[in-house]
Amino acid sequence: MSLNLLICDDSGFARKQMAKSLPPDWKVDIHFATDGVEGINAIREGKGDIVLLDLTMPNMDGFGVLEIIRREDLPAMVIVVSGDIQPEARKRVLDLGALAFIEKPIDTDKARQVLTEYGILTGI
Protein backbone atom coordinates (compact mmCIF):
# COMPACT_ATOMS: atom_id res chain seq x y z
CA MET A 1 0.00 0.00 0.00
CA SER A 2 1.45 3.36 -0.94
CA LEU A 3 1.64 6.39 1.31
CA ASN A 4 -1.07 9.02 1.31
CA LEU A 5 0.19 12.58 1.17
CA LEU A 6 -2.14 15.52 1.83
CA ILE A 7 -1.43 19.04 0.63
CA CYS A 8 -3.49 21.51 2.67
CA ASP A 9 -3.38 25.15 1.50
CA ASP A 10 -6.07 27.66 0.55
CA SER A 11 -4.08 28.81 -2.47
CA GLY A 12 -4.27 26.72 -5.64
CA PHE A 13 -0.99 28.23 -6.75
CA ALA A 14 0.68 27.13 -3.49
CA ARG A 15 -0.82 23.63 -3.72
CA LYS A 16 0.61 23.29 -7.21
CA GLN A 17 4.00 24.59 -6.07
CA MET A 18 4.07 22.01 -3.27
CA ALA A 19 3.06 19.15 -5.55
CA LYS A 20 5.74 20.15 -8.06
CA SER A 21 8.41 20.31 -5.36
CA LEU A 22 8.01 16.63 -4.42
CA PRO A 23 10.58 14.15 -5.75
CA PRO A 24 9.12 12.88 -9.06
CA ASP A 25 10.16 9.29 -8.38
CA TRP A 26 8.44 9.22 -4.98
CA LYS A 27 5.50 6.84 -4.93
CA VAL A 28 2.76 8.61 -2.97
CA ASP A 29 -0.92 9.22 -3.56
CA ILE A 30 -1.42 12.97 -3.44
CA HIS A 31 -4.63 14.48 -2.05
CA PHE A 32 -5.60 18.13 -1.70
CA ALA A 33 -7.51 20.20 0.85
CA THR A 34 -8.32 23.90 0.55
CA ASP A 35 -8.63 24.85 4.21
CA GLY A 36 -8.14 23.42 7.69
CA VAL A 37 -11.63 21.95 7.95
CA GLU A 38 -11.23 20.02 4.70
CA GLY A 39 -7.76 19.06 5.82
CA ILE A 40 -8.92 17.51 9.08
CA ASN A 41 -11.68 15.60 7.29
CA ALA A 42 -9.17 14.23 4.80
CA ILE A 43 -6.82 13.18 7.60
CA ARG A 44 -9.69 11.40 9.38
CA GLU A 45 -10.36 9.56 6.12
CA GLY A 46 -6.78 8.32 6.13
CA LYS A 47 -5.57 10.58 3.31
CA GLY A 48 -2.89 12.25 5.36
CA ASP A 49 -0.13 9.88 6.44
CA ILE A 50 2.05 12.84 5.58
CA VAL A 51 0.62 16.36 5.54
CA LEU A 52 2.10 19.49 3.97
CA LEU A 53 0.24 22.17 5.92
CA ASP A 54 -0.12 25.91 5.37
CA LEU A 55 -0.74 28.14 8.41
CA THR A 56 -2.70 31.15 7.16
CA MET A 57 -6.02 29.77 5.91
CA PRO A 58 -9.70 30.71 6.22
CA ASN A 59 -12.20 28.65 8.26
CA MET A 60 -9.53 26.80 10.21
CA ASP A 61 -5.86 27.75 10.14
CA GLY A 62 -2.87 25.43 10.39
CA PHE A 63 -2.53 25.93 14.15
CA GLY A 64 -6.11 24.70 14.55
CA VAL A 65 -5.38 21.64 12.42
CA LEU A 66 -2.35 20.75 14.54
CA GLU A 67 -4.38 21.13 17.74
CA ILE A 68 -7.05 18.70 16.52
CA ILE A 69 -4.47 16.19 15.28
CA ARG A 70 -2.91 16.23 18.72
CA ARG A 71 -6.21 16.14 20.65
CA GLU A 72 -7.60 13.24 18.62
CA ASP A 73 -4.23 11.59 18.28
CA LEU A 74 -4.64 11.33 14.50
CA PRO A 75 -1.94 9.40 12.65
CA ALA A 76 -0.42 12.23 10.58
CA MET A 77 3.14 13.39 10.15
CA VAL A 78 2.88 17.13 9.56
CA ILE A 79 5.37 19.35 7.79
CA VAL A 80 4.33 22.99 7.96
CA VAL A 81 4.94 24.98 4.76
CA SER A 82 4.32 28.63 5.48
CA GLY A 83 5.23 32.22 4.72
CA ASP A 84 4.78 33.04 8.41
CA ILE A 85 8.46 32.89 9.28
CA GLN A 86 8.21 34.51 12.71
CA PRO A 87 10.37 32.54 15.16
CA GLU A 88 7.30 32.29 17.42
CA ALA A 89 5.20 30.70 14.64
CA ARG A 90 7.88 28.07 14.05
CA LYS A 91 8.14 27.39 17.79
CA ARG A 92 4.37 27.08 18.16
CA VAL A 93 3.94 24.56 15.35
CA LEU A 94 6.83 22.43 16.57
CA ASP A 95 5.37 22.55 20.10
CA LEU A 96 2.04 21.46 18.63
CA GLY A 97 3.67 18.39 17.18
CA ALA A 98 4.70 19.35 13.66
CA LEU A 99 7.75 17.48 12.44
CA ALA A 100 9.38 20.30 10.52
CA PHE A 101 8.92 23.78 9.08
CA ILE A 102 9.59 24.73 5.46
CA GLU A 103 9.69 28.39 4.49
CA LYS A 104 7.61 29.42 1.49
CA PRO A 105 8.09 29.51 -1.41
CA ILE A 106 8.88 25.79 -1.32
CA ASP A 107 11.16 24.23 -3.94
CA THR A 108 12.51 20.78 -4.81
CA ASP A 109 15.68 21.17 -2.77
CA LYS A 110 13.92 22.29 0.42
CA ALA A 111 11.36 19.50 0.13
CA ARG A 112 13.90 16.76 -0.54
CA GLN A 113 16.16 17.94 2.28
CA VAL A 114 13.39 17.83 4.91
CA LEU A 115 11.88 14.57 3.65
CA THR A 116 15.30 12.93 3.71
CA GLU A 117 16.23 14.36 7.09
CA TYR A 118 13.16 12.85 8.72
CA GLY A 119 13.47 9.52 6.98
CA ILE A 120 10.21 9.95 5.10
CA LEU A 121 11.80 9.49 1.70
CA THR A 122 12.55 5.82 1.56
CA GLY A 123 13.34 3.50 -1.26
CA ILE A 124 14.50 6.20 -3.67
Binding site: G83, I85, P105
Partner: peptide, 12 residues
Protein backbone atom coordinates in the same frame (compact mmCIF):
# COMPACT_ATOMS: atom_id res chain seq x y z
CA UNK B 1 -0.01 33.82 -2.29
CA UNK B 2 2.86 36.16 -3.27
CA UNK B 3 1.48 38.68 -0.75
CA UNK B 4 1.24 35.94 1.85
CA UNK B 5 4.97 35.26 1.57
CA UNK B 6 5.90 38.97 1.51
CA UNK B 7 3.75 39.89 4.51
CA UNK B 8 5.20 36.97 6.45
CA UNK B 9 8.67 38.41 5.97
CA UNK B 10 7.49 41.84 7.10
CA UNK B 11 5.81 40.31 10.14
CA UNK B 12 8.99 38.51 11.06
Amino acid sequence: ELTNVAMGRAAE
